[in-house]
């Protein structure tokens, strides 16, 4: 158990300034730590990992790790990741996106990446808000929550990322919070080891922009809320129906095996080559 932090330090860029740019208590750093541990556990080399990130707070974590890192445009992370994976399937491509990034501006790309089952592990760091631009409501801001663009309460229904990914055909769909680090480590490690499109939703608190407007006094209160509210998927059904609706299930929702796009493409090129002989 020891040396967790030293292990992470080993993967950080030594010519970057620390501490990183994120706010105190922001869960993004915890996700980064979990990602590093997963990469380490699988024995992947730094050279074969490509971390593709979008725009927003989540996009900023890529620069700190010593992998191949690409900080792309807003919402288009998965398009870059698709190009990279198809161009060189030997690379381990990880896409890091925020909720606004992946589901609002990048919603279309998200659906299609899941549909075509491109070999990318997609992490959506869901903090229910646009953090970097100052706390505007996103497509995962829950109804009646406050933000700078929903000062009287959010009127729109929010997306359920897990359900969306399932409907779009992702073969691996999992969710954890940054408080449940062991689960997070496990699902990211599993996702990285699998072929195809693997979606991991991570609930991560933004106290600066979301918490303060929504009755969380401190960032710790938000972690306590996760502790109270998140429930392992298999325990969910044991609760009465009313309570079920109020809790957030965490765990692995879908785990299927389907050939990835790059595998299918390789099969076609093989077939064509055979035929031309």
């Amino acid at each position: 158990m020891a040396e967790v932090t030293q292990l992470i330090h080993h993967y950080l860029r030594h010519n970057k300034r620390f501490p990183h740019v994120l706010c105190p208590g922001c869960g993004h750093g915890i996700v980064l730590g979990s990602l590093v541990r997963s990469v380490h556990q699988l024995g992947l080399t730094k050279d074969e990992v490509v971390l593709v990130a979008g725009i927003g707070c989540s996009g900023r974590i890529a620069v700190y790790v010593d992998f191949n890192t690409v900080h792309t445009t807003h919402g288009r992370t998965l398009t870059f990741a698709t190009g990279i994976k198809m161009a060189n399937p030997r690379l381990k491509v990880i896409a890091v996106m925020g909720d606004g990034d992946a589901l609002s501006i990048g919603g279309n790309h998200f659906l299609h990446a899941a549909r075509r089952n491109i070999g990318v592990t997609a992490l959506i760091l869901n903090n229910n808000i646009y953090g970097m631009t100052g706390g505007q409501s996103s497509s995962t801001t829950a109804e009646n929550c406050y933000s700078t663009t929903s000062p009287y309460g959010q009127q729109e229904q929010s997306f359920d990322i897990v359900e969306l990914a399932k409907a779009a055909g992702a073969p691996y769909v999992a969710r954890s919070t940054v408080l449940h680090v062991k689960l997070l480590d496990r699902i990211i490690t599993t996702a990285l080891a699998r072929p195809g499109f693997n979606l991991v939703e991570v609930l991560t608190p933004c106290h600066t922009q979301f918490g303060r407007k929504n009755k969380f006094k401190t960032t710790v209160d938000m972690y306590k809320w996760y502790k109270k509210n998140a429930i392992p998927l298999d325990s969910l059904s044991k609760l009465p129906q009313e309570e079920q609706n109020q809790r957030t299930p965490i765990g692995i929702f879908v785990e299927e095996n389907r050939p990835s796009l790059e595998e299918r493409y390789a099969a076609i090129t093989c077939r064509l080559e055979e035929a031309s002989k």
Binding site: M1, A2, E3, V4, T5, L12, H20, L22, G33, V178
Partner: peptide
């Protein structure tokens, strides 16, 4: 208790837990 919580949950990688033997 050497549970590792602080080390795993520090978003800023600022906590190190080391065994004395090491």
């Amino acid at each position: 208790r050497n549970c590792g919580f602080c080390e795993h949950h520090c978003p800023d990688f600022a906590i190190v837990v080391k065994t004395k033997r090491r």
